[in-house]
């Protein structure tokens, strides 16, 4: 057996596989899968239409009389609530439905490489969709003299928030082979994360709960953490919050996949 294994290790020595290569390969495939189906185009078109509608019609972009993208960013938590789970729902449930998960996880890649690769691809896809809102920036710069720093941090916060929602969608899609179930669960989880810091809810809590409890509850909300990004402030606590949600959800995805495999 030892002679056997020596022959073998010399055979694989010439093959350079490393974690990054695996992640990139998986991410490339995943991203191509979005654009191979109508999902990508439908998503981007609907996202841009809704963003435009809410910013200009509902948000009163012109009536505000100020050169900022506040009326643009304020809708992101709500738009992402439905759109991001739609992007994330297929990540693992599709693999389970098709049986390709068995293929992927018997390749010489670790589970976390697969999780990160797939997550990175869909996050990149969301970044592309978000990037396509650049005419907003052009419009507001043409009309006035906006704070470009605040716009940049707004985009950064929006991207992080999308990543957090997506990681939650990734987690729920690992739970089930049914994409609809995955979608609904992740919408509910994301909704909870919005509501616990939404002023109407916190105002209600203030009436009977002690202030520290209200702080803790609202500390879990994407709203409070996204807010400072919109104002042009990058607080490390907000950064850590989004990264922690992403990290926790992806870690849980790994646990779910492992327990699913163990039977």
């Amino acid at each position: 057996m030892s002679a056997d294994s020596q022959v073998m290790s010399s055979a694989v020595a010439g093959v350079h596989t490393n974690a990054l290569h695996n992640i990139v390969t998986i991410a490339k495939r995943e991203l191509a899968a979005y654009f191979a189906s109508p999902v990508a185009y439908v998503f981007i078109v609907i996202f841009l239409l809704l963003v435009g509608f809410f910013t200009f019609m509902v948000g009163g972009f012109f009536e505000r009389g100020e050169a900022s993208l506040a009326s643009f960013f304020m809708w992101h938590p709500w738009l992402y609530l439905f759109l991001v789970p739609a992007v994330g729902m297929r990540l693992w449930s599709e693999e389970r439905r098709l049986g390709t998960m068995e293929l992927l996880l018997t390749m010489p890649v670790s589970t976390w490489q697969a999780i990160v690769g797939k997550f990175a691809a869909s996050w990149l896809f969301l970044a592309i969709a978000l990037g396509l809102t650049f005419p907003m920036v052009i419009t507001v710069s043409y009309l006035g003299d906006p704070d470009l720093g605040a716009i940049f941090t707004g985009y950064l916060g929006s991207l992080l928030m999308a990543g957090a929602y997506l990681a939650i969608g990734c987690m729920t899609s690992a739970m089930t082979r049914n994409q609809v179930v995955s979608f609904i669960i992740s919408v509910v989880v994301c909704l909870l994360l919005i509501l616990c810091g939404w002023p109407p809810v916190t105002n209600m809590l203030v009436k009977w709960a002690s202030p520290w409890l209200v702080d803790i509850v609202s500390g879990f909300s994407v709203m409070t953490h996204f807010e400072s990004f919109q104002r042009g402030v990058v607080d490390s606590r907000d950064l850590y919050y989004f990264l922690a949600v992403i990290g926790f959800s992806l870690f849980t995805t790994g646990v779910i996949i492992r327990s699913h495999r163990a039977g």
Binding site: S37, T100, L103, M107
Partner: peptide
């Protein structure tokens, strides 16, 4: 990982990514 490298596997029902 090194063990999986040596194996070629055809799972039951021959799954494949349908969009590729």
């Amino acid at each position: 990982i090194p063990a999986k490298r040596l194996i070629g596997y055809l799972p039951e029902n021959a799954p494949a990514y349908t969009d590729m």
